[in-house]
Structure formats: C-alpha cells, structure tokens
C-alpha cells in the first residue's frame, strides 16, 4: 500500500498545493489531475526521491507501512514511467531490459524472463532489436516492461500517454493498466487529461477534492 499523508511541496516558502492525503491499495491505480505547472510532476519526483534542491517536502510518504523519505531514490524501489520512454539508445532491447533485472537471478533465468516479458507484451523476438527501429507504441511497452522487471514496490506514471496518438493511446493504456493490476502493486498516475485516468480514485490537485468523475 502506498500512503501519502498530508504531503505538501514547498518552494520559496510557498506550498505548491494544499496538503494531500491518499491511500492506494495494491493493484489499484489512483489518478491525480491538474493543469500543467500545478506541481503534479514535482509530486511524483518527491515520491520517487528525485526532488530538486529548490523544493522541500512536508508530510509523510509510506510504502507498505514504512516511510520512504529517509531512503535515496535508488533504494526506494519505486518505478516511474515518463512521457518519454527514455530507452537507452546505445543498447539493444534485451540489454535495456537486463539492466533492470535484479542481480540475484541466474543468467539463464534472466534470459528467460526477458523473452517471456517481451512475448507477453506482444513483442516476441524483439530481444536483439535497436530501440531506434521501434515504433512509439512498441517503445512505450518496452519502457513499461523495463520499469516492472526491476520488481518495484509501486509504480508512478507521469503523463505516460500524452505523446501517443489517440488510437495508440487506448491500446497502450489498456496494456499498462492490465499489467499493473496483474503485478498487484499500487500505482499513481498524473495527467492533465481526465480521459487518461483509469477508474478509481481521482484527485484534482487544483481544488483537491476527491471526486468520482464516472
């Protein structure tokens, strides 16, 4: 369970939004809405541990009943999916995915996991491919696979569909949401577009009333 308790982000003594509290259960995808510049991406970087120096954080963020605030980004095990897929351009698809896998796995199993993950994502046999030759939708799927292969305890989605065109968007949305639910981890999505948000809790960061839009 991912828990935000009265979280506020302060810049130059001014809070960016009202104190925010939300509980997200495993397998649930909550959404935060807001216009651009309202601080929603900053909130995600605070949760992931990548908050820039100019901001400070108040309140508490807990994952499975433990505060993650004392941990550096790399120890939090919180995955993020950005607008850009950020695949490493100099590595093959398999290498991109292998980078994410935990070291504990033996070599044969690593290979197996990659093959299996690509197959499930509808990208069988893509191991040796150069990321540069993939379409936007294929890249987005690989990017999600990469976040998930690191076995994160929670997943953050930072407007992950905003750069995809409408047809692709629906397809990727379904893929992402299904995959997250199957992984059974809490996920938090931010977007400025209500159509991106899945069913479930939606919080508008501007007025911050929990609302059920559907």
């Amino acid at each position: 369970m991912l828990k935000l308790q009265a979280v506020q982000i302060i810049q130059n003594g001014e809070p960016l939004f009202h104190p925010l509290s939300i509980d997200i259960k495993a397998g649930e995808i909550a959404s935060i809405m807001g216009t651009s510049g309202c601080g929603k991406s900053t909130l995600l970087s605070a949760i992931s541990g990548n908050l820039a120096d100019v901001f400070s954080l108040e309140g508490d963020i807990q994952l499975n009943d433990q505060s993650v605030l004392p941990l550096p980004m790399e120890k939090r095990r919180i995955g993020i999916l950005f607008q850009d897929d950020l695949l490493f351009p100099h590595m093959s698809i398999a290498e991109n995915l292998a980078f994410a896998l935990p070291q504990a796995l033996p070599k044969s199993e690593r290979q197996e996991k990659i093959v299996e993950a690509l197959k499930q994502a509808g990208l069988p046999g893509f191991e040796k491919r150069d990321p540069g030759t993939l379409s936007g939708g294929q890249r987005a799927r690989v990017s999600l696979l990469r976040s998930l292969l690191a076995e994160p305890r929670a997943l953050l989605l930072d407007e992950p569909f905003s750069k995809l065109d409408q047809e692709l968007k629906d397809q990727i949305r379904t893929f992402v949401f299904d995959t997250v639910r199957r992984m059974n981890i809490p996920a938090l999505l931010v977007s400025h577009d209500i159509r991106d948000c899945p069913e479930g809790q939606v919080i508008n960061l501007a007025n911050q009333e929990g609302q059920d839009v559907r």
């Binding site: 992931s48 790399e74 993020i80």
Partner: peptide
C-alpha cells in the same frame, strides 16, 4: 537527467 532518473528508479546509484 532522464537517464539518471530512470537508472535510479531501477535501483542504481547515480
């Protein structure tokens, strides 16, 4: 910045 964010979220030190 992007590479650092992705890499760190995957559990790697900066």
């Amino acid at each position: 910045r992007g590479s650092l964010a992705v890499g760190r979220s995957l559990g790697y030190h900066r």
